[in-house]
């Protein structure tokens, strides 16, 4: 795997093709738009779809009261339990995908020589295991509230859509370890704040026990983010020769 940034035959910018670019600009400057009018019509079109659109979907109803009491440590409270279910399901989906992202990153780590001094594999394994533990915590939390941890809720679906690019980036064998870390950087930034918000939502909906349980996860995510930043800077500086 190529790990260094090099100068090469990149052809994407206009400065790579000065003659053709001159010809391109001659025509481009003279041509008129085929339809006159402001770009705002495009916004109006999108607005009309936005106003008519159905939602992504709904949250499934909680389990029976009987089931909740039987298994529950902190039965669901409030008139709109679906809001809490949806946000837990979002974090749950994120953490489960997070495990897979770190597994993919571990592959890249193993395929790259010379990383260990800056990014110890054991640290990556630890984070992967933390994400798995967070996923299990959320599964148990959802069950304790009488929710279905296997359901894909609207916020879980939304986080899945947002995560597609991260998965693609880490799994591409051509992206090097540092480029792959960009995906984990986005993921960890989101994760730290996602947990912080989930704790606040749990507290404000009366689930203090859950909020306490979530705090440890939030602290771990803060350490993950700090590590990812440290590794990104460390690897970049090492390439600059300034490590």
């Amino acid at each position: 795997m190529e790990t260094t940034t090099r100068i090469g035959m990149n052809k994407t910018g206009i400065k790579s093709s000065p003659f053709d670019t001159r010809a391109l600009l001659e025509v481009s400057d003279e041509a008129a738009p085929s339809v006159p009018g402001p770009e705002s019509e495009l916004v109006a079109l999108k607005m009309s779809y936005a106003k008519e659109a159905d939602a992504l979907g709904s949250v499934p109803p909680p389990a029976t009261v009987k089931g909740t009491v039987k298994s529950g440590v902190d039965a669901i409270k409030g008139a709109r339990p679906q809001v809490v279910f949806d946000k837990i399901a979002e974090r749950l989906a994120f953490e489960r995908t997070g495990v897979r992202l770190y597994e993919a990153l571990l592959v890249k780590h193993a395929a790259t020589d010379g990383l260990e001094s800056i990014v110890p594999a054991a640290e990556l394994v630890k984070i992967r295991d933390d994400e798995a533990a967070h996923f299990r915590l959320l599964v148990e939390s959802m069950e304790s509230l009488g929710g279905d941890p296997t359901a894909q809720t609207p916020c879980a679906a939304a986080t899945g859509i947002a995560g597609q690019g991260l998965m693609q980036l880490v799994n591409d064998p051509r992206t090097n370890f540092l480029q792959s870390l960009q995906a984990l950087h986005i993921a960890e930034l989101t994760d730290v704040d996602g947990w912080a918000m989930l704790i606040e939502i749990a507290r404000s909906s009366g689930h203090t026990k859950l909020a306490e349980a979530f705090q440890r996860a939030e602290q771990q995510e803060e350490r993950h983010l700090a590590n990812v930043r440290k590794w990104m800077l460390g690897l970049t500086k090492a390439e600059l020769g300034k490590a």
Binding site: S71, V99, P149
Partner: peptide, 16 residues
Amino acid sequence: FPGGELARKVVTIGAR
């Protein structure tokens, strides 16, 4: 496994 293989140890099938 319901919820994915990572959930194997924690989900109680049929709890709902």
